[in-house]
Design a protein around this nucleic acid. Structure first.
Length: 247
DNA sequence: CGGTCATGCTCAA
DNA sequence: TGAGCCTGACCGG
């Protein structure tokens, strides 16, 4: 689940529930030092690609990355004890969020936060159409195959394995080759539209009329033409490709 | 109930 | 390139 659309959804949910409030910040598991943030006012929560940044008054930022396995639990019963293994618990006036099994949860000073953001490419949910030209040029300039380039967070921020499979299918592009600037711009447009749909739906959406369906991702056959889907490891992740519809 | 895999990423080799 | 991270979902016995 944790690709950019999911992280932007977490940011929105937590911003609406907690921003502007003085939070109780704890680490029931003990693996996160919550003291610098406990009792401080949360100004904002923002997603940058797959990263979450929490801005506090008079404290560093908190940086969260869910990795493959991280997730949040939400409750409106503030008396409920956090489940075991909760790395960070953020409690406001009416809601509490528990962070479980993240790959990163740490304080970040302003310089480190700026460095993190500077190392990320454009995020389709953050710059949208305004970032189209720069995003297309960055992706097309990469020497890597487009299937590897799309997963490189310094080129574009927020695309993961499921979006890679589905966006390349929608664009009709074979992941093993490179792309022109025009093809990269088409991929960007597809990403902007579909990640937005995914943000609202809370899942990957590659067909607005069938939000629960996928074209090739984890499928034995292509949903459009029925051809057997080819799958193999590309850039460390399993690629799913229709050999007929993607050239 | 054990084994495997996963919409991610880092680090060692 | 592969192990590790150390959770949850799923599957077969």
């Amino acid at each position: 689940m944790p690709e950019a659309h999911a992280l932007h959804r977490h940011a929105r949910d937590q911003r609406e529930a907690l921003a502007g409030q003085v939070l109780s910040v704890t680490s029931p598991q003990g693996r996160f030092d919550a003291a610098p943030f406990d009792g401080h006012l949360l100004q904002d929560v923002q997603a940058w690609g797959k990263h979450l940044l929490y801005a506090f008054d008079d404290a560093p930022d908190v940086h969260v990355h869910l990795g493959l396995k991280g997730f949040f639990l939400r409750t409106d019963d503030l008396t409920l004890p956090a489940r075991g293994g909760t790395r960070m618990r953020l409690a406001g006036e009416r809601d509490a969020f528990s962070l479980i099994a993240p790959s990163r949860c740490e304080g970040l000073d302003a310089a480190a936060r700026d460095e993190l953001i500077a190392g990320l490419g454009p995020d389709p949910l953050r710059v949208g159409e305004a970032g189209r030209e720069e995003a297309a040029e960055r992706l097309a300039a990469s020497r890597a195959a487009v299937g590897a380039a799309l997963l490189d967070q310094s080129l574009w921020a927020g695309i993961g394995n499921a979006w890679r499979a589905e966006l390349l299918f929608l664009a009709g592009i074979d992941p093993t080759r490179r792309v022109t600037v025009e093809e990269a711009a088409l991929l960007w447009d597809l990403a902007v539209v579909h990640l937005r749909l995914g943000l609202e739906a809370g899942q990957v959406v590659s067909d607005a009329s069938a939000p629960d369906e996928r074209w090739v991702y984890k499928r034995p056959t292509c949903r459009r033409c029925g051809s057997p889907v080819k799958s193999w490891t590309l850039a460390g992740r399993v690629a799913w490709v229709c050999p007929v519809d993607q050239r």
